[in-house]
């Protein structure tokens, strides 16, 4: 077996072990590699920063445990900025596991102790609402006709913030973070096209190529591009967390992937060219 043939058939155990090492090294010894803030994340930050205090945000936690490592840190940073700017947040979940992510996010933000926020006055969580676009249309159309209680069963009429919002016109902005393409598109359809509400979106990096056209065409004001976008938001808001730790690791692992792609291509062409 020639060297090129060997390089073409590296056992996956070796590749996985190298990936694991490439994750471990920067995790144990953070390198502090420079972070270039993307324009889409900067647009998200600037949009929230320019909103007047007291504005109401409809925020969809549209991801579950699988999406939490990518979107959770960005979600925490986004909430830090919103609470710091005295925005009020009506949260809901279009993902089945979204209601399980809510306590994790709140444990990271600690709105009561960090910002003196009060549940019911400054933020509310409606829980999981099934139906994706039907749920969006329901919340934006007439929230109180759809739901009568929050996720813990407390009557919406007894929660000042929930009692104040009736439909789309009461939300100053709609924001979502999701792992589902249908949810990301759904919010653009329902909130922007149907009700002309400004939108901020967050999605997995693998979804960015299909969601970015909505940002480019002005239908979204900001877009958080997966873990990279999350690191940007953590940097901009000054709340360093898992995403900034991850950006070092990402740089390392992506470099390793590039090296493997190069090795694979060089070996392929050398074999094809008779360089055995």
């Amino acid at each position: 077996m020639s060297i090129w043939e060997k390089l073409m058939s590296i056992p996956r155990e070796v590749i996985m072990a190298l990936v694991f090492i490439a994750i471990l090294i920067p995790a144990l010894n953070p390198l502090g590699l420079p972070l270039m803030v993307g324009s889409m994340s900067q647009a998200w930050y600037d949009t929230v920063d320019n909103m007047p205090a007291g504005s109401i945000v409809l925020f969809d936690i549209g991801y579950g445990s699988g999406g939490y490592p990518s979107l959770g840190p960005g979600n925490i940073a986004a909430f830090h900025q919103m609470f710091e700017n005295d925005l009020r947040i009506v949260m809901m979940a279009t993902d089945l596991e979204g209601s399980m992510m809510y306590p994790l996010i709140m444990a990271g933000v600690k709105p009561e102790s960090n910002y003196g926020a009060v549940y019911g006055e400054d933020y509310v969580f409606l829980g999981y609402i099934a139906g994706t676009q039907t749920a969006m249309a329901g919340v934006l159309g007439d929230l109180h006709a759809l739901a009568s209680a929050d996720y813990q069963g407390t009557s919406l009429s007894s929660l000042p913030l929930a009692a104040e919002v009736g439909g789309a016109e009461d939300f100053d902005i709609v924001a979502y973070m999701t792992t589902a393409g249908g949810t990301a598109e759904g919010w653009v359809y329902q909130a922007y096209s149907q009700y002309d509400r400004p939108i901020l979106g967050g999605c997995l990096s693998m979804m960015t190529t299909s969601i970015k056209p909505y940002y480019d065409s002005g239908q979204m004001l900001g877009l958080m591009d997966g873990i990279k976008g999350a690191a940007d938001l953590e940097f901009l808001t000054g709340h360093a967390g898992d995403a900034i730790i991850s950006s070092d690791i990402l740089s390392f692992t992506q470099t390793l992937v590039l090296i493997f792609i190069l090795i694979g291509n060089v070996a392929f062409w050398m074999q094809k060219g008779g360089g055995k």
């Binding site: 990936v19 694991f20 994750i23 471990l24 995790a27 699988g66 999406g67 939490y68 490592p69 990518s70 959770g72 997995l204 990096s205 693998m206 979804m207 960015t208 190529t209 299909s210 997966g226 873990i227 990279k228 898992d242 730790i245 991850s246 690791i249 990402l250 692992t253 992506q254 992937v257």
Partner: peptide, 18 residues
């Protein structure tokens, strides 16, 4: 798209390693 997918998968995995 492929590059972004690789980044997403690593992002998920490194979250668990952290």
């Amino acid at each position: 798209s492929f590059g972004n997918t690789v980044m997403t998968r690593f992002g998920m995995y490194q979250g668990r390693v952290i």
